[in-house]
């Protein structure tokens, strides 16, 4: 036992075992461990409340008066939309104040950059952490959705990466924005003028056809619409592969652009 531990310690002492990105991810996990209880409750409670209120409450009203929405019960329609929208919200909130804190308030990034870690490691470690949070959120959401009986296809498994990608596209852009800000006032603007309108108007709660025609191109240009569309098709099992490919391409392109921008802005902010 002791001998084993010794050998293991010697192996470890060789150094350079863990990629830098993962060392940063480990920092985030470490700090998360201190608050995971409350955070876990929230990430479980939110889908339950939303699905109960929107899907079951509002849904019974809609089903009673309107019948189905796009051929399915309202609960089935709204649930995948909420999955994508909550991924957006989690990713956004983890990319606003925490990034500003690590730059300005706690200065964690500067502490990291005084070690062998580089800006790119810090940034990718942050993204890795956001992805970890998204995995947790999406899996919880899909689990609750299954409990509500809204999962209708094995393709629904792919809604997990779809929701994660949706979140990542927001995280990359918003992280870049956060790194360019001197204070946190811009975050309220992002929420009011960006996230809330997207949440309400990206076909999350009703089909795009309910919006006036001139708004369609606008909705179509926003990332959440594509995330919702992708998640909905996969969860319901009505997959139009051409539009799914288009949604996917949009989200990948946006994430890549956001990551590129974030890297530039992180470098500009942190290496002076």
């Amino acid at each position: 036992m002791t001998a084993e531990l010794e050998t293991w310690g010697m192996d470890e002492a060789q150094g350079a075992r863990m990629p830098p990105t993962l060392r940063v991810l480990r920092y985030h996990l470490y700090t998360y461990m201190r608050t995971w209880r409350s955070s876990l409750t929230t990430s479980f409670l939110a889908p339950v409340l939303y699905l109960a209120a929107m899907g079951v409450g509002l849904g019974s009203l809609i089903n009673h008066h309107v019948g189905t929405v796009e051929g399915v019960k309202y609960l089935d329609f709204v649930a995948p939309g909420l999955l994508a929208a909550s991924a957006m919200q989690v990713a956004a909130s983890d990319s606003m104040y925490p990034v500003m804190a690590a730059i300005k308030w706690i200065r964690t990034y500067y502490a990291m950059l005084a070690t062998p870690l580089r800006v790119l490691d810090v940034l990718f470690g942050h993204f890795a952490w956001v992805v970890a949070r998204l995995v947790l959120t999406a899996v919880t959401y899909l689990g609750v959705m299954a409990a509500f009986g809204t999962v209708h296809s094995p393709w629904a498994v792919l809604a997990l990466p779809a929701a994660i990608l949706t979140g990542l596209s927001f995280s990359s852009i918003i992280s870049a924005f956060a790194a360019s800000q001197e204070n946190d006032q811009g975050f309220a603007t992002i929420s009011r003028l960006g996230l809330i309108p997207l949440f309400l108007l990206s076909a999350t709660f009703f089909p795009l056809s309910q919006l006036p025609g001139w708004m369609h191109p606008i909705a179509y240009a926003t990332p959440l619409f594509h995330g919702v569309d992708l998640c909905r098709m996969l969860v319901l099992g009505h997959v139009d592969w051409a539009s799914a490919a288009w949604d996917l391409a949009y989200l990948v392109a946006l994430s890549a652009f956001g990551a590129w921008l974030a890297r530039r802005l992180f470098e500009r902010r942190l290496v002076i």
Partner: peptide, 9 residues
């Protein structure tokens, strides 16, 4: 850990 030092060390 940022220096990738083993936990034990």
């Amino acid at each position: 850990r940022y220096f990738d030092l083993p936990r034990k060390v």
